[in-house]
Design a protein around this nucleic acid. Structure first.
Lengths: 125, 125
DNA sequence: TCATTGCGAAACCATTTGGTTTCATAAACA
DNA sequence: TGTTTATGAAACCAAATGGTTTCGCAATGA
């Protein structure tokens, strides 16, 4: 047993926009590497390496079928993220009204890469 | 507008364990750099650079007080994380919760993720 | 059998990251 | 005034990251 500490954790795995896009892509479908790579502006090998990282973080499952390796989402590790995040929920619960307005104004980004300057700084002090 | 795209986004900012620890530390307290750095096994300068990255991601606020620079948590950008994560909740949620959310959201809308109403407390507390 | 397809491993490269030490400067204090 | 304190900027470094191209090999198919 004694599962060796994985080299890549969930936080690191989702830090890269390509890998976030991969997770979305594999959320419902099971796809082989080459098909996956057609969705990205980089080599198949590069995509394959991203898939490896996701695999090390436990975020995707691979299955060999003939000469193909098919990948699909394995969402369980994301629960750790959710737990981490839950600590901070109390903070925006307080500001719920402000955030609600923000979201309803349509500022939410849907690209998955999510532009940073997301929420304007209200000088709260 | 025209605000130059910040170099660091939330996903990248929280990828580093030191920075996650910083967020926790500053969650309730407002602290100056030197005091903060006492909590970490690295130089003050190194901590300062982490704080800069968090600042660029909008996750901390700095305030100059005399010769000190005091930092505190600015949790709003974490909401973006929650939004991203919400897409995957259906995978680990039980069917009842999923149905509940579906009903509460009225339906899948623009982001395909969540509207303000889905800000809900989770059992994690 | 032989060519093709799907894939990972390896070697390589440029850039980023996370750390260091040193230095300059502004604020506080004796 | 002169000294100490708090901090950021700069220069530097090793390692990690994200990409490439080349190669080998197993599975498929003509």
């Amino acid at each position: 047993m004694a599962a060796a500490a994985p080299k890549h954790d969930v936080f690191q795995a989702i830090a890269d926009p390509t890998r976030r896009k991969l997770l979305r892509l594999l959320a419902d479908k099971e796809l082989p590497v080459t098909a996956i790579s057609h969705n990205f502006p980089m080599s198949r090998t590069a995509v394959s390496k991203h898939l490896q990282i996701l695999s090390e973080a436990g975020l995707v499952q691979k299955r060999k079928v003939g000469r193909e390796t098919r990948y699909t989402l394995q969402p369980d590790p994301l629960f750790e993220l959710k737990q981490w995040l839950s600590y901070y929920e109390r903070f925006w619960d307080n500001k719920l009204t402000a955030l609600k307005r923000f979201v309803e104004e349509g500022n939410a980004d849907e690209t998955g890469s999510l532009g940073p300057r997301s929420i304007e700084r209200h000088s709260t002090e």
